[in-house]
Each structure stands twice: as structure tokens, then as C-alpha cells.
């Protein structure tokens, strides 16, 4: 296991292991309610028979627990994302080393490495895996340190880069509308 030298990663894993027995697999496609930052956990996502457990969650007092009933700070072993946070659209890709290590990885780390065979943004990862965005940021940082992922931040000044803006405009003009017309042949005048 090539990531075993990553002390912080291992610590996070140990905490996750201890927690997981309390967590039901997210079978239903119900969206997570955990939208709070680690500093301010949402009351609705707290474990327990709160209003966030849903109207069809079964008898009162026996809420269906979902993966996000684990507080985000537990999954990250108390760490929060660093100050220069990676943008939401940052692309994450699994390395071949990451694929090799996949059988040895567990839980969230396994899920992230498995999902990123194709480039994914941090936002897509968070949504697909039903994880809080900042949890994904921390774990992706761990996995990158271990060499399991590469992380490609967007070009910082893209908004002021004329060539990027022109490429986006040209690309968008070529997007057909529902009748198959692009912007360029849509305009008679």
C-alpha cells in the first residue's frame, strides 16, 4: 500500500473505520442534507430524529441514517481545508499508482480514487459521493500527497484571459439549441 507512509491519511482512515458501523449505505438517491461547513454543522443533518431525517424515514425515534449523519469533521479527522482553497471546478484525476492502490483504500478515499478515473471537478465529486465539499477538498489533498491523485487547479486568471474568453464564446456559440441550431446559423440578421 503505497499510501501507508502518509501519517495524516492513516489517522483519518482509522477514525473513519471506527465510525462506519454506525452509517448505513446511501442506497436511496435522496440528496444529503449536510450543507453546513465543518465549523457550523447543520442541525438538519445531525443524527437523531430531527426534522432533517425526512417524512418517510420510518417510525419517529428510529431515523434512517445516511452517510452524512457522520459529521464532516470526523471524516477529515478534524482537519479543515487550507486557506488557499481549491476552486470548486478544480479537476481531479486518479494516477496509475492510485488505481494500483485502490484495493487497499477504504471508504471515502476508495470512492474518490475510483470515481476519478475520468477527470472530475471537486464539485462533481462532492455531489456524486454525497460528501461535503470541504471534506472532498481535505481528502483529495491527502490522496494527492500520497500520489493517488493529481489535482489540476483552474487557470487563476482565466476570467481576464482574452484567449480563454474567446474560446468559451466560440464553444458556446456552437452549442445547438433544442432545434439543433447553433447561435451562428440561428441569426438571420
Amino acid at each position: 500500500m503505497s499510501g501507508s507512509d502518509d501519517v495524516s491519511g492513516r489517522r483519518a482512515e482509522a477514525v473513519v473505520r471506527a465510525l462506519r458501523p454506525y452509517v448505513a449505505p446511501p442506497e436511496e438517491d435522496e440528496p444529503p442534507a449536510g450543507v453546513a461547513s465543518p465549523a457550523a454543522p447543520a442541525p438538519a443533518s445531525a443524527p437523531g430524529p430531527g426534522p432533517g431525517s425526512g417524512p418517510a424515514a420510518g417510525p419517529v425515534g428510529e431515523p434512517v441514517r445516511r452517510s452524512l449523519s457522520v459529521r464532516p469533521f470526523l471524516v477529515t479527522a478534524g482537519r479543515v481545508s487550507d486557506t488557499d482553497r481549491l476552486p470548486l471546478e478544480t479537476q481531479v484525476i486518479t494516477t496509475t499508482a492510485g488505481l494500483d492502490a485502490l484495493p487497499a483504500l477504504t471508504f471515502e478515499q476508495h470512492d474518490i480514487v475510483a470515481a476519478c478515473r475520468e477527470p472530475l471537478s471537486l464539485a462533481e465529486l462532492a455531489a456524486r459521493l454525497h460528501l461535503h465539499l470541504n471534506v472532498v477538498r481535505v481528502l483529495a489533498g491527502d490522496l494527492r500527497s500520497a500520489g493517488h491523485l493529481t489535482v489540476h487547479a483552474p487557470q487563476a486568471d482565466a476570467a481576464h484571459d482574452l484567449s480563454v474568453l474567446r474560446r468559451v464564446i466560440d464553444g458556446l456559440r456552437a452549442v445547438p439549441d433544442s432545434r439543433g441550431l447553433t447561435r451562428d446559423n440561428n441569426r438571420p440578421a
Partner: peptide
């Protein structure tokens, strides 16, 4: 070369 997928697309938003 260690990457499984090479250079990813440039993301803009």
C-alpha cells in the same frame, strides 16, 4: 506519465 488520464480539460465557470 504517472497519471491515468493525462492532462485534464481547462475548467471555467
Amino acid at each position: 506519465s504517472a497519471s491515468g488520464a493525462g492532462r485534464p480539460p481547462l475548467p471555467v465557470k
